[in-house]
Write a protein that binds this DNA or RNA. Sequence first.
DNA 1: TTGAAAGCGCTAACAT
DNA 2: ATGTTAGCGCTTTCAA
Lengths: 342, 342
Amino acid sequence: MEQNGYDAPRVRTIADLARLAGVSPGTVSRALAGKTLVNPETRDRIQALATEHSFRPNQMASRLRTQRTGVIGVVVPLGHERRQHLSDPFFMTMLGFLADRLTEDGYDLMLSRVIPDAADWLERIVDSGMMDGVLLIGQSDQIGTIERVARRYRPLVAWGSSNLPGQVHGAVGSDNVAGGRLAGERLVARGARRVAFLGDVRAPEIRDRFDGVAQAMAAAGLSQTPIQLDTPLASDLMERQIAAHLDQVAGQIDGIAAASDVIAMTTLRVLADRGIRVPDQMAVVGYDDLPIALSAVPRITTVRQDIRRGANEMVSALFRRIAGEDAPSVTMAPTLVERDSG
Amino acid sequence: MEQNGYDAPRVRTIADLARLAGVSPGTVSRALAGKTLVNPETRDRIQALATEHSFRPNQMASRLRTQRTGVIGVVVPLGHERRQHLSDPFFMTMLGFLADRLTEDGYDLMLSRVIPDAADWLERIVDSGMMDGVLLIGQSDQIGTIERVARRYRPLVAWGSSNLPGQVHGAVGSDNVAGGRLAGERLVARGARRVAFLGDVRAPEIRDRFDGVAQAMAAAGLSQTPIQLDTPLASDLMERQIAAHLDQVAGQIDGIAAASDVIAMTTLRVLADRGIRVPDQMAVVGYDDLPIALSAVPRITTVRQDIRRGANEMVSALFRRIAGEDAPSVTMAPTLVERDSG
DNA sequence: TTGAAAGCGCTAACAT
DNA sequence: ATGTTAGCGCTTTCAA
């Protein structure tokens, strides 16, 4: 079509198409939306015409009119850990599952990576009029902000804990204390008596994991609390930092609880460099159960969070909230995946 | 504010705010946009009022009016490999860098994961009127479609090769043949004489890498072409498949070129299970240089693609195209990162 | 410097 | 079953 060199003016609007079809814009709108109140014949004719001219209605206009955007905002707030990059495997895995699910349900996904220095970072997002709902991956240290906004903006669900009394925003998360306990118990069962915890406890979920490990140690009658050692998230720094930490506590520990599989994997790497055998001389337990845990040498024993299920729960809760229903917070139980590292 | 229990009706529109300020909507619009043609005093007064009522203009309306969306679409087409999940580390790393850069430049990022079964999947996206430009991560087997759309839709840049004669869409990629050659040369230098290539050559970039490896082998005077072995992308399947492959060619090969670091890492895992020492008995070279390559045991020798730079080049090219300028395709040279696995 | 008014392109009453 | 009309909330001429 349009091979004559005299291009017909491009069909850009419903009005254009209506003129071409000899009907009114309203009819075209109905026909394209597949509504029942149009004569099947006109509907087909209009749809054919639309295809022929590869016409697609302007979404911006449609969304302004219907006040329904078909977009879900997925926001990653980077609080205390500004250096953290979006490519963190946990975020990415979560994001992947969210994208899968939202796409299936016909929603688009708008991604924002925000460093919450402006006090109204979340307001800016929810009040932009650009999305039907917002999903937060991680609450970081922004629970106050999140609660404030959630008080008046319902379709908001966050990944993270829901232990706040009277909490109004929907939260989906796993029980990090229980997860930490699982890790601690495993280390004890493997004969560890003195363990180090690798992770930055300024993040509340990491703090919970640490507490869980400590509880397990105490329950086993070990008087010492775990040695907590910070780890930066950036991968190049992480290895050096972990190496420095481990050299410092060399000989004093026989077990390591890592706050994530990424940390665990880097730890294995550092231990291998030092000729320390895992798990014989040092038991290592990870957290998350990302695919890399399975490909590491040795395979990483880890506390599994069901990220796919988490993503699905988040989306389901959000949809319920968009529909005006209530959606309770959900806390999932972590499980221990026993492999070879500890 | 609004603590009296009689909430003032929420200020939702510019008209609301105008009424409150005793000016016209036009003036509010100008004031909020910080335009110069408003009296500084009225401007400040209006801005203060907006802050007080935490008013934020509706983006949908603004964008419809200005015909500028501030949104860049990032699209991952999953062609021949439908099972591939968005959480593929390469995609995710790329996405992370793109998000960083786009956020910096004040754009929002709309993510679509499409399975291109409908012939007009890309048209649907670019004609939605929802974005100012589109970035494609990977061309999959959709070059035809991409070219067709790019012919009339300029702001389109894809990650991938640009070897098509007369290619009209902008492409940013690395030279996969050269990369494959690098891998092959390294294996030869390490004493490998008979190598296997692990990767699915139906993807054009993987095919190029295979060809590069083959070229290197030939240049070294080795008559045998590499044995090509398919690998599924799903992580659980991948390990079993690789194990089966390697058992089948056991004893016949002394080097492995992996199409990605993920494949390389899984390969190391399988070799460790079989007690095959790397690199002494088997040299392994990866591709991409993802963070995991550095944490693997042993550290993976790999062909590095500068993903961060790639992301930046893509965005820069896209912005130039949005501005109506021309942006040539760019091909980056891969480099060899020598580590321990091969 | 500000106001009035005309749309951006679409949809949904309402009317026919 | 289809047409007419009035907006969605904003920006931007044009006029004052």
